[in-house]
Amino acid sequence: MAAEARAVPRGGGWRIVARKELADHLLSLRLAVLLVIITLAALGAVYSTSGEIRSAAEEASGTPMLFIRLFTVSGETFPSLLSMLGFLVPLLGLAFGFDAVSSERAQRTLPRLVAQPIHRDDVINGKFVASLAVIAATLLALTLLVAGLGILRLGIAPSAEEVARILAWYVLTVAYAGVWLGFATFLSVVLRRAATAALVSIGVWLVLTLFSSFLVGLVADVVAPVPDQPTAEEVLARARWEMWLGRISPQGIYDEATGVLLNPEVRTAGILLPEQVDRAIPTPLALDQSLLAVWPQIVALLALVAAAFAASYVAFMRQEIRA
């Protein structure tokens, strides 16, 4: 056989895996369903938000960075685009990860796949990269759609700085989806059945996104109760507890970071005391200052992606091929 036609992949095995996974994802029903859900949610949010902004157009004219409010202002019927996506983006990560490895086991393709001349980690690397690429492409298309609709509805174009802020938000959002993707991939390695992984991941998603604020409030009440006639210290202590507990959830971190990035007026993700803003002139921050304010959150989010992926990587490499 033509041995010369064999440029056996050296260290490039993950690309071949990723390419196949990408083709699978793009043709999959799950991508179609997710696209419909997320597009509808985003369009609804933008539509109602832009209506809100338009009705306030008189007073709003001349407001700096009006366009970017498309992301943060909530309309009458819909929450803001930011909170909508903060809620739905994890679903993207979960959907493309929860059966990454277990589906290979269920189809009995894993032993055959790892017997090909690729490194074992090429399998998991390729899968992660492909899923993240699909998520990134989906979110990019969504962002462009939202921006386009916003330009039509508001009649203003985003300024360069707004574009930069939206870009930064985009990168963070992909990273946020990556955290969930890594978590779901880990579940797909550890749990043999895809259905169990789906259930566990959706459960964790609901707890961390929907119920986390209640839970945080509950725990904060216990550790730092606020009496009827609270002192400033007591109120502050409770607020601090609430802030730190919220940061346990990746959603808390993501919300803080994006909240600051998309609201140039916001100066910190933390607590601002009246004396700190006393006589401050409410001017928008420059982009680099906003970035600086949430730098810890950005780093934390990227670290979480790395940690979630590393966990699934290690679990996969240590696992016996045999089920």
Binding site: A2, A5, R6, A7, V8, P9, G13, I16, V17, R19, K20, R112, L113, Q116, P117, I118
Partner: peptide, 13 residues
Amino acid sequence: YTARLNGLRGRAA
């Protein structure tokens, strides 16, 4: 897919 993983592609594959 197996062919690609083994470095075989195109006409030959």
